[in-house]
């Protein structure tokens, strides 16, 4: 198998039926892409294949000869987070964090395609990504921020103003 992962050539010899998810995790040692369901229901395994979001848990690696894969590990440039990752930090999105690599990859794919998505377009793009901790409102805020549609103070920092001390 020969493909490009995060800009680097990767060559390995596995059963072509093996899903990309497990090739990334167990063969290449890239742990950012997560296993959630194995049937493309939860989106935790989302990566970009030639610029399009894909559920790596149901994508046989044999179908990807010479493809270019981007995983969560490939977003930052050196120490500088990708703008979507930065928006995730600004809005303090993660709780347990397990689904967030998949969420971020779906958001990156959305914004590359559509830099200023409407609320409805965001919902359509993100509805395939489960979050058991219920961070959806924070994800919404982060995508609006990353797309320049929200420029006020991040929700996480604004919140101490409103404790009612009785």
């Amino acid at each position: 198998m020969k493909l490009t992962v995060n800009g680097q050539p990767a060559q390995f010899d596995v059963d072509p039926e093996m899903p990309l998810l497990w090739a990334l995790r167990d063969v290449l040692g890239l742990m950012g892409t997560k296993f959630g369901c194995g049937i493309a229901q939860c989106g935790a395994c989302t990566v970009m294949v030639d610029g399009m979001p894909r559920r790596s848990c149901v994508t046989p690696v044999g179908s990807l000869e010479d493809a270019s894969i981007t995983t969560i590990e490939g977003l930052a440039v050196g120490d500088r987070p990708h703008p979507v990752q930065q928006a995730w930090i600004d809005e303090q999105v993660p709780q347990c964090g397990y689904c967030q690599a998949g969420q971020i990859m779906s958001a990156v794919a959305l914004l590359e395609e559509n830099p200023e998505p409407s609320e409805e377009e965001i919902a359509r793009a993100m509805t395939g990504n489960y979050c058991r901790c219920g961070t959806y409102p924070a994800i919404r805020a982060a995508i609006l921020r990353a797309s320049g549609q929200e420029t006020g103070p991040p929700a996480a920092n604004a919140s101490e103003r409103t404790i009612d001390r009785g």
Binding site: G29, M31, G32, T33, K34, F35, T71, I72, E73, A76, P81, Q85, W88, I89, Q92, V93, P94, G97, Y98, Q100, A101, I104, A156, N157, S159, E160
Partner: peptide, 25 residues
């Protein structure tokens, strides 16, 4: 204390760092 902090676990979670049990290698 009493003020919203930037969570210490957020940067690693946004980076996709191998921090979960399932990431042990």
């Amino acid at each position: 204390l009493g003020r919203s902090q930037h969570r210490v676990d957020v940067p690693a979670k946004v980076r996709g760092a191998p921090i979960f049990g399932v990431d042990m290698a």
